[in-house]
Structures are given as structure tokens and as C-alpha cells.
Amino acid sequence: MNSRLPLVATASLGVFALALSGAGAAAAADDDQAMVSVFHAVPGLTVDVYANGDELLPDFKPGTLTEPQALPAGSYDLKVFEAGADPKGEPAIEKTVEVPAGSNATVVAHLNADGQPQLDAFVNDTAKVAAGKARLTVRHVAAAPAVDVRAGGQPVFTGLENPKEDTAEVNAGALSADVVLAGTDEVVIGPADLELAEGSSNIVYAWGSAQDKNLALKVQTLTGDSAPSGASAGTTNNSDNWTVYTAGGGLLALTGALTARRAVTRSRV
């Protein structure tokens, strides 16, 4: 499988079903806004992303996770082109996305289990967790078979398939995690160290391609303030990137507001 291929028009994003309730929603955004991050998890392909006809994310490189940005709630026509392609031409992906007020989500361009690029949207849980705890979520967005995710050598999530996710509340503090093929001890990513702050929501993405030997982890952390009776996850996006087959990489951060009908200055990364 060669992951260096254009995103196909048949990739599915679907409509955001992101209505969150209670304290988590209140922490995520103002009443008329939503918080949205975008993660590019297709290896070897740089793209330009447009929203409602304006360039939103130019030269968007693999491994890049944007900071959460406040978007006015509403409808967005998203178009994805290979970087430098004529935006008046046929987009590789075009999908209208409804962004409801008060939501927090991450849109992920990634490979499916068969190595074909697609888009998916995930709701980020920002509800309170118990005092002394942190939320850990793992999302399988790699061209790879089912996996188990272990902490300290013990399985925490088992049989996770692309594009599924699983979540649990765990003790806050240091955690050593790795990813193995489901039902085996064959490590395919890691081990890697993760510091889970009290009240934080930590989202670990397994991405890349097993066949191309570029599997990696990306960590998205939503942090919040602690309270004696519980802790509330917030909207600060701290990120890290761990690779298993290749060294380095790191985080390529994009800045600027993700707002419709506003051209974004081309970033140099």
C-alpha cells in the first residue's frame, strides 16, 4: 500500500453530531461558538483545506494538529485539495459540515484499515472527571489491524479497530503506554511516556501505515482546572508526536483563527 496518494472523493466526513450537554459543553465554547481542531494523519501528503471558499489551512502537513479554535456555529463547506492545486478545480474531498454551538471536536484526515484516505469527526469529551483522575481516550486512525493499548504492560483497551475509539478515567500522573497487535505482545508503537494532568482529557491517536512502517502516536491534551470534588477538562490543546519507526517529527503547529469567509495567510512550516 502506498500512502502517497490523493485523498479520494469517496472519503466520508459525515455531519457533526456534536451536541454536548452540562458543564463540559459550557467549558468548550461560548453559546454561539464551537471549538474545533483538525489533525492531518495521512502520511506523505500535504494538502490545502478550504472552508466556504476561503483558504483555511494552507500547506497542511502530515502529523500536524491545529490548536482548538473558536468557530461560529453554523454550516461549513469543506474542500480538500492537494497542496498547490487550483482551488477552482475539482476538490479531492468536498463535504458540508454542521457545527453546532457549544461543541468541541477534532476532524481527522487519516487512512482507513485498508490504507485509503478518509475523513472522520470525533467529539472531544470535556465533561468533569473525578478528583485525582484524568480522562484517557485512544483513537485508531492508522492503516493497521486491530490493536491493544497497554499501560505499564497491562492492556487498558483491547481489540480497537479503525476508526473506533475507547475511553476510560485513569489515575492522574505519569503513564508508560505502548500499542501491540490485538491479542499479542508484538509492540507496533512505543513505549512512550505520557504525563496525565489532573482533570485533563488526553486523546491518543494511533496513525500512519503498518505496511509503510511509519506508525506513530499523536497526543491531544485538553486541560482544565482542578476542583476538590472533581476536575473539568478544558480547551487547551497540548500536543506531542511519538514515532516507532522513524525518529523525530515533533509537532508542527498552525496558528490563526479558523473562521469562515476569511483568507488565512500561508504558513511557513
Rank of each mutant, 00 (worst) to 15 (best):
E161I: 08
K213C: 00
L13P: 06
L181Q: 14
I189R: 08
A23E: 15
A143L: 01
A29H: 10
F60H: 05
E169R: 07
A19M: 07
S267H: 11
V49W: 07
T235N: 11
A85I: 05
L7Y: 00
A17P: 03
A146G: 13
T221M: 09
V99F: 04
T106P: 05
D185A: 13
E195S: 12
T106G: 15
T10R: 10
V42W: 01
A216T: 01
A143K: 09
V179S: 03
L196I: 02
A85Y: 01
E195F: 00
R262G: 03
V129S: 06
A142T: 00
T167S: 09
A172C: 08
D240T: 15
A151C: 05
L252F: 12
A253H: 13
T137H: 04
V47Q: 03
P72C: 05
Q69P: 06
P155F: 09
A92R: 11
K128G: 11
S226G: 05
D86R: 07
P43L: 01
Q69V: 15
T137D: 01
G250H: 07
Q211D: 12
P100R: 04
G24A: 11
A253E: 14
K213G: 09
A27T: 13
D114N: 05
N241H: 14
D240Q: 11
A260I: 01
A73E: 15
L194E: 07
H110I: 01
E67H: 14
A41D: 03
D125W: 07
A192M: 13
N2C: 04
L254S: 00
K79L: 14
D166C: 03
A105F: 06
K88T: 03
P155K: 09
Y205S: 12
R266V: 13
F122T: 02
V179E: 00
T265V: 14
I189H: 02
A231I: 01
G199L: 03
L160P: 09
M1S: 10
S176L: 14
N238L: 05
D185P: 00
E195Q: 15
G22R: 11
A143I: 06
A73H: 10
Y245T: 13
Q211W: 04
R268N: 11
A263L: 15
G234R: 09
F16T: 08
F39L: 13
A105I: 03
G115V: 10
T236N: 09
A168M: 14
D166G: 12
N2K: 06
K61D: 14
A151P: 00
G102N: 08
F122M: 11
D32W: 12
E169K: 07
G159R: 11
L175R: 07
V38R: 04
S75I: 12
F81E: 03
T126Q: 05
V156I: 06
T235Y: 05
T46D: 13
E90R: 02
P100I: 06
V188M: 08
G153P: 01
S3N: 04
N214R: 08
A27H: 09
N241Y: 13
E67N: 15
